[in-house]
């Protein structure tokens, strides 16, 4: 019985790894249509960054939410990647509030928001408030 339990725990923990590494590809959505150009620009930039794989870009009039996953081998340089991206974004979009995160939770939430946006079953107001929630989650400290 004890051995069975250990096997179950092991299998479930290994499988839970799959959830983390399921590739979603590059996704981007806008809340305000005026930002279409912005997200294509950013998406291009992200595509050029070879260290990243899944990315989500969500743009509103005054704020940008970018979350991404770093390829495993480059995780040691996560800080550097974030710094480069942030510098570039600040330079390109000085008027916007930029939220940049490699956190898995932020990615998960952003991706859900992206799905809702792309299926268009969420109102502009709801989407904005959800985006705000994600941003506050990111800024939360331990």
């Amino acid at each position: 019985m004890k051995k069975g339990l250990i096997v179950v725990i092991l299998i479930s923990s290994i499988l839970s790894g799959c959830v983390l590494f399921e590739e979603k590809g590059a996704s981007h959505a806008v809340i305000h249509t005026s930002q279409e150009e912005t997200i294509t620009q950013i998406a291009e930039r992200l595509e050029d960054t070879k260290e990243l794989y899944d990315t989500v870009v969500i743009a509103a009039d005054s704020s940008l939410l970018i979350s991404y996953k770093v390829k495993h081998l480059y995780r040691f340089d996560m800080k550097g990647i974030e710094k480069d991206l942030e510098a570039w974004l600040k330079d390109q979009y000085p008027d916007q509030e930029i939220t940049l995160s490699s956190d898995y939770k932020i990615f998960l939430e952003s991706f859900q928001l992206f799905e809702k946006l792309s299926q268009k079953n969420i109102s502009e107001k709801e989407a904005l408030s959800e985006m705000k929630k994600i941003i506050s989650l990111k800024n939360e400290l331990t």
Binding site: L10, S12, I14, S16, D103, Y104, K105, I106, E140
Partner: peptide, 21 residues
Amino acid sequence: TIGQLVTVLLIIYFPFTEQTA
């Protein structure tokens, strides 16, 4: 590994980020 599983579960089902989990 069990600890990592707990972290992942906390991230997916509760409002914790990698930082706060």
